[in-house]
């Protein structure tokens, strides 16, 4: 597994664990109310499990298993920097969206986070596009 995939999948696992924790806190609260602020975790739960976990895991695995270039010095392609930038932007985006949803004074960060996530996905697609190719190409 290449280093970028290791980073993406491991960070995705952390997002899964934290996302599950927030979800379990809310589910427990539904059964036995603990604190009214618990339900403010709802958008964070969705962000972490959907973007931080599922989307990032798919990106990490895609970077690992999609066809490579046997004749290039870097078998993962010429634009791996873009994929690394996508990793940084995606996680900065997830954190920004979470912070923006949790702290009212940082609400503007939510939009910045969404823009970072969009940029991450576009950069990742630019990296991955040439790798979607027939064998030997």
């Amino acid at each position: 597994m290449p280093p970028l995939s290791v980073w993406m999948v491991r960070v995705a696992l952390l997002h899964l664990g934290i996302g599950f924790t927030f979800g379990a806190l809310m589910l427990f609260d539904k059964a036995a109310p603990t604190h009214p602020d618990i339900w403010r975790l709802w958008p964070l739960h969705i962000e972490l499990t959907l973007i931080g976990w599922t989307v990032q895991l798919a990106m990490g695995v895609a970077f690992w298993i999609m066809p490579r270039f046997a004749r290039l010095p870097n078998r993962y392609g010429r634009r791996t920097t873009l994929a690394w930038a996508a990793f940084a932007l995606l996680n900065a985006g997830v954190l920004a969206v979470c912070a923006g949803n949790w702290w009212p004074s940082l609400a503007d960060l939510t939009l910045a986070g969404r823009i970072a996530e969009l940029s991450a996905v576009i950069l990742f697609i630019i990296h991955l596009w040439p790798r979607i190719k027939p064998p030997g190409a």
């Binding site: 599950f20 924790t21 979800g23 379990a24 806190l25 589910l27 427990f28 539904k30 059964a31």
Partner: peptide, 10 residues
């Protein structure tokens, strides 16, 4: 049961 469900999944 719902509380137990939360703990088990966590």
């Amino acid at each position: 049961m719902l509380a137990l469900s939360a703990v088990l999944q966590l």
